[in-house]
Amino acid sequence: MTQTVMCRKYQQELEALPFPPLPGKKGQEIQATVSKRAWEEWQALQTRLINEKHLNMLDPEARAYLMEQLERFLDNRDTDQAEGYVPPSN
């Protein structure tokens, strides 16, 4: 049986992450409050931001920027978007 979690982003019970996506307390908090669906959507946005903005993940400022964008994404607030990105049409 699949574990579920009350997703912070979607405000409904959805499939949970199988393990913490980040180390430490923050990863445990995300696993307990963020669905697999929301995390996968965040990973896609994060990848676009890293690529488009040429972020160096060794730079503490770039990592802080992504954590800020993560919080905004999970709280359903506006996030930065990759310029020129056009989502695939269904």
Rank of each mutant, 00 (worst) to 15 (best):
G84R: 04
A62T: 02
T33N: 15
A16F: 04
T79I: 08
L17T: 05
I30T: 05
Y10N: 09
T47Q: 15
S89P: 09
D59G: 06
V34W: 04
Q3H: 13
R77Q: 14
R37L: 11
R37P: 00
N90W: 09
Q81R: 15
R8V: 07
L55D: 10
P87S: 12
M57L: 15
C7M: 05
P88T: 00
P18N: 05
E71I: 07
R77G: 03
Q43V: 07
Q12A: 09
S35G: 15
N76C: 11
Q81M: 13
P21S: 10
A44S: 10
P20C: 01
Q69E: 15
P20W: 04
Q81L: 14
G24D: 11
Q12L: 10
E68R: 12
T4R: 11
N76K: 13
Q12S: 08
Y65L: 12
T47E: 13
L55V: 10
E29S: 15
L66Q: 09
K26G: 08
A32H: 08
E13R: 07
D80Y: 09
S35Y: 12
Q3C: 03
Q46D: 01
Q81F: 09
T33Y: 01
E40R: 07
A16E: 06
R37K: 15
L74I: 07
A44E: 14
Q11V: 04
D75P: 01
L22H: 03
D75K: 07
A38V: 02
W42H: 01
I30Q: 02
S35T: 11
E13D: 09
K36I: 00
Q43F: 04
A64G: 06
Q28M: 03
F73H: 05
D59I: 02
A32M: 11
L58K: 15
M57G: 09
E41D: 11
Q11N: 13
Q81P: 03
I30G: 00
I30N: 02
D78R: 11
A62W: 03
T2H: 06
M67R: 15
W42N: 00
I30V: 14
Y65N: 11
A64P: 03
A38T: 10
G84V: 04
Y85C: 11
S89Q: 13
E40Y: 06
N51H: 11
G27A: 05
R77F: 01
